[in-house]
Amino acid sequence: MGMSDQFKDKAQELKEQAEKAMGGAKDKAQERGQQARERGQQAREQGQERGQQAREQAEDRGRQARDDADERFSR
């Protein structure tokens, strides 16, 4: 095996290692992206739930205030 062949073999080996490393990094990046999307979805859902709870509480307070006012004026 000549020196030229050794360089070619080493170059091929390094190329394969680089491709493998890049593929692993890409997989990790995709996984982190998916996790970020899932966290965003969870935050959105929690925000919607909190908003709904706040609306319901406001409606309850409004009803209670209206009932209290009706009771005071009906006396």
Rank of each mutant, 00 (worst) to 15 (best):
A11S: 08
R44T: 03
Q30K: 15
D5W: 02
A25K: 10
E31T: 13
R63F: 01
E13T: 13
S4W: 02
Q52H: 11
K15M: 09
D68A: 10
A18M: 09
E16K: 13
G51E: 15
Q64M: 09
A36R: 09
A69V: 04
R63V: 07
Q17A: 13
R72A: 14
M1A: 11
A43L: 08
K28R: 14
R61F: 02
A58N: 05
D60M: 09
A29T: 08
R75D: 13
A43F: 02
G40K: 06
A36C: 02
Q41W: 06
A11M: 12
A29L: 13
E19F: 04
G51K: 08
K8P: 00
A18R: 11
R61M: 07
R55N: 05
A21E: 14
R32T: 07
E45F: 01
D67H: 06
E49P: 00
R72S: 04
K15S: 15
M22E: 15
M3C: 04
R37G: 03
Q6E: 12
E38K: 14
E45D: 13
M22I: 11
D60G: 04
E49M: 04
Q48I: 02
E45Y: 02
E13M: 13
E59D: 11
A21P: 01
R63Y: 03
E31V: 07
R66V: 00
E45N: 08
F73W: 11
A43P: 02
A29H: 06
S4K: 13
E56A: 09
E19C: 01
G24K: 12
R55L: 12
G47T: 01
D5A: 07
A65E: 02
E45T: 04
A11W: 10
Q52I: 04
K8C: 01
A65T: 02
R75C: 01
A18G: 06
A54F: 05
E13S: 14
E59Q: 14
R61V: 05
Q46S: 07
K15A: 11
M1N: 11
E13L: 14
D67F: 01
D9V: 08
Q42K: 13
D67W: 00
K20N: 09
G51C: 06
E45L: 05
K15R: 14
R61E: 10
E45C: 02
Q12K: 14
D68F: 01
K20C: 03
A29V: 12
A69F: 09
A36T: 10
R50H: 13
Q30D: 15
G47V: 00
E49Y: 03
A58R: 11
G23K: 15
R37W: 10
S74M: 03
E49H: 03
A29I: 10
A58W: 00
M1Y: 04
R44G: 02
K20G: 04
A54M: 12
E16Q: 14
R37Y: 09
Q57S: 09
K8T: 04
F73L: 14
G2Q: 04
D27T: 12
D67P: 00
D5V: 01
E59C: 03
E59Y: 02
